[in-house]
Write a protein that binds this DNA or RNA. Structure first.
Lengths: 336, 336
DNA sequence: AAAACGCACGTTTACGATCACAGAAAATTG
DNA sequence: CAATTTTCTGTGATCGTAAACGTGCGTTTT
């Protein structure tokens, strides 16, 4: 195909004006049956395809949204992306994906996309970018924050209750009889990590367990970081009998570390993760973890944004997504 | 901010024509120093942001490309996506991500995006969509196929040599002393799967090993499928001493199946995977596998597409990406 | 029968930038 | 200093669609 017919070509062929051709194709009910079919036939016979760029310019709407993710090869984000994408598709939006790598330069260049009207709004899973979000607000770009919300809740937000995460874990472990429980935390510049730490301390206190500060070590959310942190815990005079890890990757690292010291999970040490990534179920032992409904989180975030774009108002409350603990094979009562 | 200044506002402020303002911002060297700074100052002072939609309409270029992926929560694709995205970003393109789920309806709706000029080209990792690709060709949309190439190589293509995959695996296992080797294959409607089967048979024949047809079973590329396939192999009168699995997920499933039968890997059975997903290295035992440079594959595909968009010609040869076998802990000489 | 209404459609312009063309101003040359 | 080139800038057309607005005509209302 060499020449791309435009709407005016179609109109000419059908013997109507451009306006009528436009209406016949986009708002069929505004047009008489006969002209409607005439226009449609003309469009089909010449292989007409609407030019969405032109429509966007005229309507001041691109029907695409920008999604900013810190990293994608992380086991955690892909399912959220899936939820976002499928919902976007159902709502008639395309998804532009930006990987920020927590890199300020990249973030700024992605901002260009929304500021220059190439996207109608954005979803940010990278709460570290508070400055980005501020600028987003400044330009009145509809924005939804997901999970990591460093910008506070001045923006529409979909997240889980990270204190509840810790509470559920502590409740489970204390219920099994553990008293000496450690926490392998996430990166300290993350609000999620600090909330989980606070929640852990609070829940432990509520259960009447003392938490020595040595029992909270940073695992940086990674497999290797979790393993290193676990080794430090095992080197203590009185090691913990159970460990609450801030995510599944560090939990698996912790399990690996136990093994290198000849300890069995869960017989000698209980380990709990957070996220419930796919690998958690197939891991050996299967990981007891906090399930986050990642797909649904994506769907809800996209719904929220779409509403925001269309009505530009929102109820000032963050959407809190329910979570639950999934008991698998990595936790058991402590030995005596 | 309530009003968005346009180029004509900037021009008015700077006391020049719109054309000059456009040149000053987009082609600064075509304009006198003094007017250049005048225009820039005006743009800055009123917070001007270019409208990329308008530019796209005029230039008939969107600077965005469509990437079609069958599924994203698959451990395999995210790293490719990362390569694609980062390269796209460096080249000045945005990436629109479409998840097809191998669903014909979705595929067609994504085609709309390129046909309606919202993207300058597309990258297809979902070779199952031969009809899609055909239409892509029909509309002269620059397209690059990656890995799974059901449409043949009439299109620009970036892939690995799947027969070589099988050859490397067989060479490794035969080198260890194995003679009775099985293959847990991928879904039969995939060209990649059939090529690996053919390569397996060829390499085995070349090594002087007979391959009974029972020794090739379908594992559907999944963990559970791999486990089920392995159980079938272990139920044979004379089970294989080594298994070549079509991907890492099915290899891990196979290992799990061995364990449920009380067999140890690699002492009793050797297992090889393909892909080298992150989990392969942390798996217990660490998986011997064929490494695919997924990030680089993404980068190369994006480079190829960008070239295609700009020059619209290509050397008629598929880009073959080099691969190699990584020996880890899941393979060993057979017992006697 | 006159007034009021509403449907279906055409005319025209807006959307916001870029580019070809041509003219004006400045710089260079002999 | 006139002639020529070079540099710079404005005019107006253009990209393809949507929508505001207006028109003609048939139908209903009193």
């Amino acid at each position: 195909m060499t020449y791309r017919p435009t709407l005016s070509d179609v109109a000419k062929m059908a013997g109507v004006s451009v306006a009528t051709a436009s209406r016949a194709l986009s708002n069929p009910d505004l047009v008489a049956e006969s002209t409607r079919t005439a226009v449609r036939d003309a469009a089909n016979s010449c292989g007409y395809q609407i030019n969405l760029v032109a429509r966007s310019l005229r309507k001041q709407r691109t029907n695409s949204i920008l999604v900013l993710i810190p990293e994608i090869d992380n086991q955690f984000y892909p399912t959220i992306i899936k939820g976002l994408e499928q919902r976007a598709h159902n709502l008639g939006y395309s998804m532009i994906l930006g990987l920020t790598s927590n890199n300020l330069l990249r973030e700024n260049s992605y901002l260009e996309i929304v500021n220059s009207r190439r996207a109608d709004g954005m979803i940010v899973l990278d709460g570290g970018l508070d400055n980005l979000i501020e600028r987003g607000i400044k330009f009145n770009v509809p924005t939804v924050q997901v999970l990591e919300c460093l910008g506070g809740e001045s923006l529409p937000t979909v997240r889980i209750d990270d204190r509840q995460v810790a509470a559920l874990v502590v409740e489970h472990l204390v219920g099994l009889g553990h008293r000496r429980i450690a926490h392998i935390s996430g990166s300290s510049n993350s609000l999620v990590a600090t909330e989980r730490i606070a929640g852990f301390q609070h829940a432990m206190a509520a259960a009447g367990c003392h938490v020595h500060s040595e029992l909270i070590v940073n695992g940086g959310y990674t497999h290797d970081g979790g393993a290193a942190a676990m080794l430090r815990l095992l080197d203590m005079n009185e090691p913990p009998t159970a460990v609450f890890c801030a995510n599944d990757a560090s939990a698996m690292g912790a399990i690996r570390a136990c093994r290198t010291r000849g300890l069995r999970v869960p017989q000698d040490v209980s380990i709990v993760g957070v996220d419930d990534i796919d690998e958690a179920a197939t891991n050996d032992p299967p990981l007891t973890t906090i399930h986050q409904p990642r797909y649904e989180i994506g769907v809800m975030a996209m719904d929220l944004l779409a509403g925001l774009i269309e009505t530009s108002n929102w109820k000032q409350k963050p959407v809190l997504v329910p979570i639950n603990l999934i008991e698998r094979g990595s936790t058991a009562p402590p030995r005596h």
